[in-house]
Design a protein around this nucleic acid. Structure first.
Lengths: 240, 240
DNA sequence: CTACTCCATGACGTGTTGGGTCATGGCTCT
DNA sequence: AGAGCCATGACCCAACACGTCATGGAGTAG
């Protein structure tokens, strides 16, 4: 680039294009996070990483994930990646999988598929249409941002499981998502929240989401407090 | 706008400018979330909301916040806005404020000021430089996104409290931020994680962040499990 | 004091591109 | 058969990112 233009950019009298910003970032070997900050400040969309968790990055994150999962006990908590694949979960969360088709548990546990597949949790979710609608909306939102073909395929698949929910237009999404589900013959009521790590500079970790189910009524609270899953922990761990 | 250009935009043979996208979004009265999705998909930076929860939205969020705070007990947890003001916190978190200058507690509790101010926690934080450096780095990151003058002022103020930390260049920040602090004469060791509601790709900062301190060693774990703050809960609630 | 580098800045050219006007022609619906 | 709606081509324009050339001021070194 010309020194003339560089000078103008530096003094703020010329607005650099997205291309130039990326060139400079590369030239200076800026860390991803800083590059994204710079792009945002310049009015451009950030670069999205490859959202593939290599084993090393994941291993480094495991300790933190365990902290969060244990800290949320006895509230069922799942850590998922941007394709809704389960990275890890606490025992309370695995308790949900009792009674689902084993085929869904072997081939890479996926929360979306597990929740919406007829052989998964679908038949036991009392507010299925509401839950499925919100989940699909959330997935489509992430799809817009990542443009991930694999996620697109997952959404297409899931929409066949919840045809009515797929057709409903996205209403204003809430931070919390109610979930009513029958477990061991009892209908439990949860509030599902999704959070993500905010300080992560390592972009890979920021692509993990933490889904926690909080009890929404007294009955559920008591059931969770009793930790009814501890006497079959051996069964559950076998599923993973 | 001309029908000609609209047609081209619709069929994808013309790339609309950020301005045009915003015009269309306004014309169709699109919800903010969808507008941001559209901008991102078009390669532009999203519109940042006013990141001030109006009273109604905040009231609606309070229930969820309480769920999260209670769910994390006994791990000290604080919910803050994008200016590090405390929106709410669980009792364990308020336990930290014992012994700080009451002036810091009355004028709107601010985590950054509380942590870094000499009359706050600073003197009791054993790894002050490390902690302050990371905190400032995080604040500067949010500042880039929000361009909030009030936050800028807070950062300037905090940098005077931690001059050495302010000068250190931002190293690669960690996923978790270690915090060692002396409470009741005992040095406790924590790992601080910050999470936010929503998805990672949601560049629009959700207005609220959740900071949770997990015990980093056995001693701290045991102290927390004993909940040493319950016998002065009355003092603490008076502070808020 | 001089020479040389660094950089901000003005004058000015250029290629790209978002966006507009005008005209045409196919499609559907009455 | 007439009336909209819309996709598309030809063409123009204005904005702007970025370039080249020239100038001149602030340091700095000899």
């Amino acid at each position: 680039m010309s020194t003339r233009h560089l000078s103008c950019v530096e003094t703020g009298r010329a607005k650099p294009s997205r291309e130039l910003l990326l060139y400079l970032a590369d030239e200076f070997e800026m860390p991803k996070r800083a590059v994204n900050d710079m792009l945002l400040a310049g009015g451009f969309a950030p670069v999205f990483s490859e959202y593939s968790l290599d084993d090393d990055a994941l291993a480094a994150a495991r300790d933190v994930i365990r902290l969060v999962l244990d800290g949320n006990d006895p509230n069922p908590t799942t850590v998922i990646d941007t394709r809704w694949n389960v990275v890890d979960a606490n025992t309370a969360a695995f308790w949900f999988t009792a009674g689902v088709d084993p085929a869904l548990l072997t081939t890479g546990l996926n929360v979306a598929r597990l929740s919406l597949h007829p052989d998964g949790l679908a038949s036991r979710v009392t507010n299925f249409d509401e839950y499925a609608g919100q989940l699909l909306r959330h997935m489509r939102h992430v799809l817009v941002l990542t443009q991930d073909d694999e996620l697109r395929a997952l959404i297409d698949e899931c929409e066949t499981y919840a045809p009515t929910a797929a057709r409903t237009m996205p209403t204003a999404p809430d931070v919390v998502l109610p979930l009513r589900i029958v477990i061991d013959g009892v209908e439990l009521s949860f509030l599902s929240t999704v959070t993500t790590f905010g300080t992560a500079q390592d972009v890979t970790l920021s692509e993990l989401s933490i889904e926690t189910l909080y009890p929404a009524d007294q009955t559920t609270r008591e059931v969770l407090a009793a930790r009814p899953w501890i006497d079959r922990e051996s069964d559950l761990s076998a599923a993973v």
